[in-house]
């Protein structure tokens, strides 16, 4: 089990007009899963992913990643923890505009002080596996939205994280790019056993997941594993 949440509650604006975004979410994710968090807009998908990823703090409850409680980790330690264990793909604008595709993918490894040879080799492999070996030196503004998201997936994979969190990664993509991105994610999941947790409210994306967790009003309404 790589992710375990215990009774996560999130209340935004506790002092003004409180919003109960999550109401006691208990969840376990095993290694190698390909899981979709689904639910209508405002159901708490982003909030849940942010808390699992250590980007936001739960009001109550705990998050354990590989058995380690990240809920009360000091900021600096948490940043390091994210760097080494969690890959992120956001809805859009994932990439650093001034860096090329190659530099973006290698960035986290640079932060980890990996050698140039190691970085170059891995970056090239990763860009190949997302089908962008010909865009190595392009900057984000020269790539399509779908290509940018593929670079983001490659970047998330670079430090060999325990799992990848992707919050509505296809929300801004057309159906061809959506399928393309999901093909890549599914292949990485199968071939490299990389764990993916992604949120979506797009039925075509939901159909590709092997486990579907449905949130309604900040609670898990259903949790189905497809055979």
């Amino acid at each position: 089990m790589i992710i375990q949440t215990k009774g996560i509650t999130k209340i935004y604006n506790p002092n003004k007009i409180p919003v109960n975004a999550l109401n006691g979410v208990d969840l376990q994710i095993e290694e190698g899963e390909f899981t979709a968090i689904v639910g209508p807009s405002g159901s708490g998908k982003t909030t849940l992913l942010n808390i699992i990823g250590g980007l936001d703090q739960a009001t109550q409850g705990e998050v354990l990643i590989k058995g380690e409680n990240i809920s009360k980790m000091p900021d600096n330690q948490l940043i390091d923890f994210r760097k080494n264990n969690i890959g992120f793909v956001f809805q859009a604008y994932n990439l650093i505009p001034v860096l090329t595709a190659k530099e973006n993918v290698g960035f986290v490894m640079l932060l980890q002080n990996r050698s140039k040879e190691e970085r170059d080799q891995r970056v090239l492999e990763l860009l190949q596996s997302v089908g962008l070996e010909d865009k190595v030196n392009k900057r984000p503004s020269e790539l399509s939205g779908g290509q940018q998201q593929r670079v983001a997936v490659a970047r998330a994979l670079a430090p060999k994280p325990a799992f990848i969190l992707a919050d509505e990664p296809t929300a801004n993509l057309d159906s061809v790019s959506t399928n393309n991105l999901l093909d890549i994610m599914a292949r990485l999941n199968e071939e490299e056993k990389m764990t993916f947790i992604f949120s979506t409210h797009d039925q075509r994306v939901i159909d590709r997941a092997r486990r579907v967790i449905t949130l309604v009003d900040g609670k898990i309404a259903s949790d189905q594993v497809k055979s």
Partner: peptide, 9 residues
């Protein structure tokens, strides 16, 4: 994004 992916402040 940079802090999210692990760049120290």
């Amino acid at each position: 994004v940079l802090t999210a992916i692990g760049m120290k402040r």
